[in-house]
Design a protein around this nucleic acid. Structure first.
Length: 814
RNA sequence: GCCCCUGUAGUCCAAUGGCAGAGACAAACGACUUAAAAUCGUUACAGUGUCGGUUCGAAUCCGACCAGGGGUACCA
């Protein structure tokens, strides 16, 4: 079997037949939307793509065989930094590099036999696409969900650019390994925190449909906690400060008060005090601290006493106020009540500065001497009205007391922060806002969209800390839409995660000019029935897309609140136990593997390697073995001598049973993501059929044809070229991709007789053939009258006899 | 530190609480061959990370521990 020739033979035929076009209006088949995460066009496809798309293809092709109108689109996540870097290096527009790579990847996907609907392709860098990013931005803006604020962002002093969190690896810039620092910039945000509760609570509908791991990661990321807000008066300040705590029950144990050193509150409190100088010096020190230092887990606590006091609302005590960097400025109110006996961080701090530790929850050990804060439940002491209560009782009692005095209330808090979408980069979606000295922020009118990117020619794209767009004078300087005075466009571009948050809807009608997507089509196709992609996107992309979908629901544009009904995370392809990389020298090139073994063998190897969510170690698998198997399957089709349409009913019963058992097991396996098992069933059927041909019913038996046809169809979800060849050899017209999955005949799944085991005290005594329909009484009787069993029984009365027809009888003696 | 996942033949992996083996890789031997490759056939290989518990019965359920992997990083 010459796979090169076979590949060349079928590609034009598939182009012609386009079996996976899903847009025909007269198509009455039920719809199914299968979506692979779209690739970033950096170079050609690699082994990771090969695995992901092989798995997505199994699912898409399977449902097509099962009679569904499957939509399986592909596109490119085409904005992003690598294009910009390539552009700088090659001194040309990022667009050229991007579209070149898209063409390369597209050709590889075609060769890889991906069952994509090539009529639905989209590229996020097309103005026709990013126009709608801008439109969504304006909708967000109008709904109060897009806003600007100053905040400290990751900054690489060497590259002179802002970095996303994902680009900071262990405190270092992923590109140049410089130590990343923080820089304060005015940035755009989407208010995802408004949706925190819904993002969390709606996950109950994804239970069992998404990997538990992903749901867990999202829950942790959102990080909802419950507790209370407590109002502290500050001596010498009119305004009180509210702090959030999960442990209002320990308020009587508070011995000091801490504000985030980098917060405005800290600066204000320090001002004019004897501590001001010391505070400023401290602030300088921690501002210079890199993430590396910050990441040190054993980092000792530091801080400055501000010579100010807060009043504990529970007992009127004066609490010294400290400023420290162990309190985060952007969580809660940037200030905490410190109860060292029952909070480890507070205890660590108290130990450094010799602050008092007061136990309010009784425990065998004393935190002050052990250095271990006691966080467990216990009886409250030294706490006035809370004495004698346990933790939950004390929490609600304290909240009642505070509430009655207007000094606090129950509250929730989230770890989730708003989504920073500004990027100081060229190759992205321009933010459709114009800044006017007189009118302030003015949104671009919807009918003026898209705000096109300027020509990159002549622009300096090299990173320098400000957006390259700002230097495009003719582009950036525009009259204010409101007052016609001089104004400037916002020069930042959007995070590319905006692009991918709604692309699944654009596929429904990627050429639509009047809207981002067609709500009617969305009703018919969306949400996505099956999403397939890497676990690397477990948090950000999936969370953002869920957020967008909820906003769209609130806008009345879609009638669902979750974008992806089922999610499959495939593992990575690794080599010798570790991720492939050039520097490690363990890179396996996909094109080499394809040239050596053929597309089908590589796809089969990916699918057969193990459960899809596990990593595939290319050192552990055998594309050569896959190729051999494909040859065996293919030869089967050539051996069949009975004609197309022969009546299978007269075929060899044993082989027919094997065929229907295999079909049944394989479909069950595919539907539960056990693709490797489905392949094993196919291999089993091939082996059985081979034996039937050579040493059994012979090649002319109709059951052999039935089996070979089943193999072709089962194989076509994994190895489309081989399956197509088999289908042709079996006398059919192309394409096997549209052949219906054979209907499993239930009667052929039933065995007349099965081997049962008889146990005595759980140990196997006998194996007997019994009718599979045997009744419990008959089965028990049969087992008990076996000579060897009867011998054991003589004179003794069993304590219990467990009968599980038709598989097992267990006779238990005391 | 906290949270999650996974531990089954030499290797990758299967087994609704019911005979540990479906499938494959690698190995050994054999057939074919002048020989090799390819192909075909045969064989061998573990008692399921450890300890305890539940059960008539545990790879499977529960608990502790060990090992590997992943997520997260002072979130009050």
């Amino acid at each position: 079997m010459d796979f090169e020739a076979i590949q060349e033979k079928w590609l034009p035929i598939w182009d012609d037949l386009a079996p996976f076009r899903s847009g025909r209006p007269d198509d009455t088949r039920p719809k199914k939307y299968v979506l692979d995460m779209f690739p970033y066009p950096s170079g050609d496809l690699h082994m990771g793509h090969a695995e992901a798309y092989a798995l997505g293809d199994v699912i898409a092709r399977y449902w097509a065989h099962k009679g569904f109108n499957v939509m399986h689109p592909i596109g490119w996540d085409a904005f992003g930094l690598p294009a910009e870097n390539a552009a700088i290096k090659r001194n040309e527009s990022p667009a050229i590099w991007t579209y070149e790579n898209i063409a390369i990847q597209k050709a590889s996907m075609r060769r890889y036999a991906c069952s994509f609907d090539w009529d639905r392709v989209l590229h996020t860098c097309d103005p026709e696409y990013y126009k709608w990013n801008q439109w969504f931005f304006l909708q967000m803006y109008n709904r109060g969900l897009a806003y600007r604020k100053d905040s400290a962002v990751n900054w690489c002093p060497s590259c002179q650019t802002v970095l996303a969190n994902e680009q900071v690896v262990a405190g270092l810039c992923e590109r140049c390994d410089a130590v990343v620092t923080k820089k304060k910039l005015n940035q755009w945000y989407f208010k995802i925190t408004d949706y925190a509760d819904r993002l969390l609570d709606d996950m109950s509908t994804l239970e069992g449909e998404w990997p538990e791991k992903v749901l867990q990661m999202q829950r942790n990321w959102i990080g909802r906690s419950t507790g209370g807000e407590i109002v502290f008066e500050i001596e010498g300040r009119n305004q009180p400060v509210t702090v959030y705590t999960t442990r209002p029950d320990t308020l009587f144990g508070a011995t000091f008060f801490v504000v985030a050193a980098d917060s405005e509150l800290a600066a204000e409190l320090a001002k004019g005090t004897p501590s001001e100088k010391e505070f400023n010096a401290y602030l300088e020190k921690i501002k210079g601290a890199s993430d590396i230092e910050r990441l040190g887990t054993e980092r000792p606590k530091t801080g400055v006493f501000l010579n100010r006091y807060a009043i504990n609302p529970a007992n009127g005590e004066r609490l010294p106020i400290w400023a420290s960097d162990y309190v985060l400025a952007d969580y809660g109110s940037g200030a905490v009540m410190a109860c060292p006996a029952h909070d480890q961080r507070d205890l660590d701090f108290a130990k450094v500065y010799d602050l008092p530790v007061r136990v309010v929850v009784a425990h065998e050990t004393d935190p002050a001497t052990t250095g271990e804060a006691t966080v467990a439940d216990g009886i409250h002491v030294n706490s006035g009205p809370l004495d004698g209560l346990n933790k939950p009782e004390a929490i609600s009692r304290m909240l009642e007391i505070l509430e009655s005095k207007n000094q606090g209330k129950a509250a929730k808090n989230y770890r989730l922060r708003d989504w920073l979408i500004s990027r100081q980069r060229f190759w992205g979606t321009p933010i459709p806002i114009i800044h006017c000295e007189k009118c302030g922020e003015v949104p671009v009118a919807e009918d003026q969209l898209p705000v096109l990117l300027p020509d990159a020619k002549g622009l300096d794209l090299s990173p320098k800390g400000t957006s390259p767009l700002g230097a495009a004078d003719t582009w950036v300087n525009v009259p204010c839409p409101k007052c016609a005075g001089p104004a400037k466009r916002d020069a930042d571009t959007m995070d590319t995660f905006v692009d991918s948050s709604w692309y699944y809807l654009r596929y429904l009608n990627p050429k639509l000019e009047t809207a981002a997507f067609d709500p009617q089509q969305a009703k018919e196709w969306a949400p996505v029935d099956q999403y397939v992609g890497g676990v690397t996107h477990a948090i950000l992309h999936l969370l953002y897309s869920r957020f967008f979908t909820k906003v769209l629901f609130d806008m009345g544009l879609v009638n669902f609140t979750e974008p992806f009904t089922r999610l499959l995370n495939q593992g990575m392809v690794v080599m010798d136990g570790s991720a492939m990389s050039k520097s490690r020298g363990n890179l396996v090139k996909l094109s080499d593997e394809l040239n050596a073994h053929g597309v089908d063998a590589v796809r089969l190897t990916m699918v057969f390697a193990g459960p899809p969510e596990d990593d595939v170690d290319w050192a552990d698998v055998s594309p050569g073995g896959s190729k051999k198997f494909l040859g065996r399957a293919w030869r089967l089709a050539g051996d069949v001598t009975s004609p197309v349409g022969v009546d299978f009913n007269s075929g060899d019963l044993a082989l027919r049973k094997a065929t229907h058992r295999a079909l049944n097991d394989a479909q069950l396996a595919v539907e539960t993501y056990r693709f490797n098992v489905a392949v094993a069933r196919t291999m089993e059927l091939v082996n059985v059929t081979r034996k039937a041909i050579d040493n059994g019913c012979g090649p002319s038996d109709p059951a052999v044809r039935e089996a070979a046809e089943a193999v072709a169809i089962m194989l076509s979800i994994v190895a489309p070229y081989t399956a197509e060849e088999m289908w042709e050899r079996l006398g059919f017209q192309p394409t096997v991709a549209l052949a219906p999955w054979p209907t499993v005949i239930p009667a052929l799944l039933v065995e007349d007789e099965v081997e049962a085991i008889v146990q005595i005290n759980g140990k196997i005594k006998e194996r007997i053939l019994v009718p599979s329909a045997i009744s419990e009484d008959e089965f028990r009787e049969l087992a008990l009258t076996l000579p060897s069993v009867a011998k054991e029984l003589s004179g003794k009365t069993p304590k219990a006899i467990i009968v599980r027809p038709p598989k097992l009888v267990n006779i238990v003696f005391g």
